[in-house]
Design a protein around this nucleic acid. Structure first.
Lengths: 237, 237
DNA sequence: TAGAATAAGTGTCAAATCGACACTAAAGGG
DNA sequence: CCCTTTAGTGTCGATTTGACACTTATTCTA
C-alpha cells in the first residue's frame, strides 16, 4: 500500500484519542494586584465552578493551537491580548472525570482597560486577584495551572520586562516596578531596576508625563508594541 | 441533568478530536559532538523517513503523558533516560497529512553507553550528529522540533549543568566543559566555568581519576543522580 | 632518566556589574 | 514659601566576571 492509498482509506475514528483542550491563564495588573481572568463553567463536568478560559479545538475553524487560544480569549475579553505564550501541556487520566484528557496551557497578559467594558457586560467572567484565589475551588486542575503561570511570569520578571504587557499601553517606570515587585514578592531597588530597563532598551519615552501627587512621571511604551501582538512558543530558555 | 447522569451518558466519540502524539528529542554527547536519536518510520505517513522517537498515547497503559514518553523511549533505547523535560506542544492542520495533529514534545538526555547495546541491536534506530542533520529529510516537522530542543538545551548550558546528563555517570570537568562549548558554539573560559560549577555545588568528587595524556582529571558525578531519574515539566523560567 | 609535551587545575588582577543609599528635581497643598 | 510627595540621578564599596599566566601531575621520547 502506498501513501496515497493509505491516506484515502485512513479513518480518523479508527482508535481512541484523549480529549484535547486549550486553557489560558490571562493576567492583568489592577489596583496594586495581579489578577487572573476566570470564567464560570456553564457545562458539566464541574458545572458552575470557576475555571480558566479555554475549550476544545475547532477542527474546522482553527488552523493551529494558537488560533484556538486566541479565539477563546477573544470570546471572553472581546480583544486579542498583546502577549500570549505557551506554558505547558498537562495530560493524564485523572484531571477530567470523563477520562483521559490533555490541555495545552498558555499564559497571556493584557491591560485591564482593554477589556473592561466587554467583561463588565457579562456576568460569567471576572478578574480574581491571586490573593483571594486559594479560597476558590476551581474546576479541574486549574488552580495548579494558575500557579504554574504565576511562577513562569515571576521568572520573566527577573530578566525581562514582559510583565509590562499587563499594563496599559503607556505606563510609568514606577508602575512597571510595582508589577515586578508584586510578582517577585519583594521590593526592588529603584536604581538597579531603572538601570536594567535602560540597558534592555525596550521602552520608548512617549514625551508625555503623568502627574498625580509629587513630581510628574515620564510615560513609556514598549518599543515592540507597534500595534501587533506578540506570540511566543515556549521554545526559549 | 446532574453531573452523574451527564457522565453516564457521555460519549467520548461524540465529537472529533485531533490526533495526539508525543515526540522526544533525545540527545547524547559522543566523539565531540551532540547527537540525536532518530527512528526509521515503519508506517505511513512519511514511511521510511527518519523521525523522532514517539507515538500515540495508549489510553489503557499510560496514566499520563510522561508515561507515554517514557514507554516510547524505553522501547527504542532499552532504558529510561535520566533527564526528561517537556519542550513544547505543536498543533495544526498541516504538519500531518492525515489532518489536525498535535504533538507534545520532550527533550531528554542520556549517556550513549547506557543504550549502546540496545541500539546497536536494531537497525531502525541511529544516533545522528547535529551537523549532519540538515542533510536528512526528516518526517513531519521533526527537523524544527530538534532545532527547538537544541535551542532549549543551549539555554540550559548558560545557567545550569543539565547537559551533564548527556555524559556517562562519571565524567571530568573538561568533558562537561566541552559539551557546553559545543552547545554554545564558542569556547568557554576554563576558570569561569569551574567557578560556576563549584558555586552551584551540584557535583560530587568521586575520588577517582581518569588519565589519558597529561595530568589525570578528577571524575565527578551529579549529586542529584542518586539512582532515580529527573523529570521536569517546563514550568520553570 | 631527564626533559618535552600535554592536559588539569589554580592565582591574580583589572573591568564590569550590582546593591545600597543619599541626594536632587518637580510638582501640589497648606 | 516651605512642606510633602513622588520621580529620577550620583556615587561608592562590594561582588562577580573575564582574561591570562602560572603551577601540577602524568606520559612520551630522546
Amino acid at each position: 500500500m502506498n501513501e496515497e492509498e493509505y491516506l484515502r482509506t485512513y479513518d480518523p475514528k479508527g482508535f481512541e484519542s484523549p480529549l484535547l483542550s486549550v486553557d489560558a491563564v490571562l493576567f492583568t495588573y489592577h489596583e496594586g494586584q495581579l489578577k487572573v481572568l476566570l470564567v464560570e463553567r456553564s457545562n458539566h463536568p464541574d458545572k458552575a465552578k470557576w475555571g480558566l478560559p479555554g475549550g476544545f479545538v475547532d477542527l474546522g475553524a482553527d488552523t493551529c493551537l494558537e488560533d484556538t487560544v486566541i479565539r477563546k480569549l477573544k470570546e471572553k475579553t472581546g480583544v486579542i491580548p498583546p502577549y500570549i505564550e505557551q506554558l505547558s501541556t498537562i495530560g493524564n487520566n485523572q484531571r477530567d472525570k470523563r477520562g483521559w484528557s490533555v490541555t495545552v496551557c498558555y499564559t497571556a497578559l493584557i491591560a485591564r482597560q482593554e477589556c473592561e467594558t466587554h467583561i463588565d457586560s457579562v456576568s460569567d467572567t471576572q478578574w480574581v486577584s491571586l490573593e483571594q484565589l486559594p479560597s476558590l475551588d476551581l474546576a479541574f486542575d486549574h488552580a495548579s495551572i494558575v500557579q504554574a503561570g504565576r511562577e513562569r511570569l515571576k521568572q520573566k520578571a527577573l530578566y525581562s520586562i514582559i510583565p509590562a504587557y499587563s499594563l496599559p499601553e503607556r505606563f510609568t517606570l514606577s508602575d512597571l516596578q510595582h508589577v515586578h515587585e508584586v510578582l517577585l514578592g519583594k521590593p526592588i531597588q529603584k536604581k538597579s531596576f531603572r538601570r536594567r530597563i535602560e540597558q534592555a532598551d525596550l521602552l520608548v519615552d512617549t514625551g508625555e508625563k503623568r502627574s498625580e501627587t509629587g513630581r510628574p512621571a515620564t510615560l513609556y511604551k514598549l518599543k515592540s508594541l507597534a500595534g501587533q501582538h506578540t506570540f511566543i512558543r515556549n521554545l526559549e530558555l
